[in-house]
């Protein structure tokens, strides 16, 4: 049986906290960019202009068919070199964080756009007709009538997706970026205490994600008392 020794954790807390900050920054920016880009994609997908709708469908289906790990590897191994040559960025510049952020944001946008599309479609067609009947343009009807209702219905789903995204940020491990999980792994590896550090990391993720999902559940009950 394993003899547990948790003593390497207290000293490592500042380092772990730095890692957590990276996890949170990636999550936050991917949520924001993902929702904005995802909304645009959803509107393109529903648009009557064929080219836009095909582009959005292609984009979404492509990203949803490929594993996140694969997308991150693209953004870790290939995209930086490509971008570096394109903009003459000196070789050896550390672009891991920015490319990880770009990868997450573009990937998540595909998932957000599906949630948002369903949300828009859940608002009855009569609302769009009513807005048009009042003389609003397509853009105005979307912005003033449909999207506000759609987003209210979608808030729980968007937040749930954010929790999943937060869990997925641990996958930046493939680019050796020290997010919270990467930091925990490094400490465990250095001190020969991998067992304790991995269990600790699991517990921290559990507490954060479980609490967040309970909050989402409560929000859902408050706004949609079934």
């Amino acid at each position: 049986m394993h003899d547990f020794d948790w003593s390497s954790i207290p000293g490592a807390l500042p380092f772990l906290w730095d890692g957590m900050k990276i996890s949170l920054v990636i999550t936050l920016q991917a949520v924001v960019v993902g929702i904005v880009w995802g909304t645009l994609l959803a509107m393109m997908r529903l648009s009557s202009i064929k080219a836009l709708s095909w582009f959005a469908a292609g984009y979404v289906n492509l990203f949803r068919a490929v594993p996140l790990v694969m997308v991150l590897l693209w953004f870790f191994l290939i995209v930086p070199e490509f971008v570096g040559q394109l903009f003459n960025i000196p070789k050896g510049t550390d672009m891991r964080l920015s490319s990880a952020m770009a990868g997450f944001a573009l990937f998540e946008a595909a998932y957000y756009s599906e949630i948002i599309r369903a949300g828009i479609q859940s608002v009855s067609k009569g609302q769009m007709a009513a807005a048009s009947a009042l003389g609003m343009t397509y853009g105005q009807s979307m912005r003033l009538v449909v999207l506000p209702q759609a987003f209210r219905n979608m808030v729980p789903l968007l937040l749930t997706q954010a929790i999943i995204l937060f869990q997925d940020t641990s996958l930046v491990y493939v680019s050796a970026l020290a997010d919270f999980f990467g930091a925990a792994y490094k400490v465990g590896d250095r001190d020969g205490r991998l067992v304790e550090l991995l269990l600790f990391a699991g517990a921290v993720y559990f507490v954060i994600c479980f609490s967040a999902s309970q909050i989402v559940k409560r929000l859902q009950k408050k706004y949609h008392p079934a």
Binding site: S170, F181, Y185, L194, A201, G202, Y205, C209, F210, S213
Partner: peptide
């Protein structure tokens, strides 16, 4: 559901 897949994998494999 509330622990990242990667962490679960490492726990199964290393812990």
């Amino acid at each position: 559901r509330n622990i990242p897949l990667l962490v679960q994998l490492f726990i199964w494999y290393f812990v």
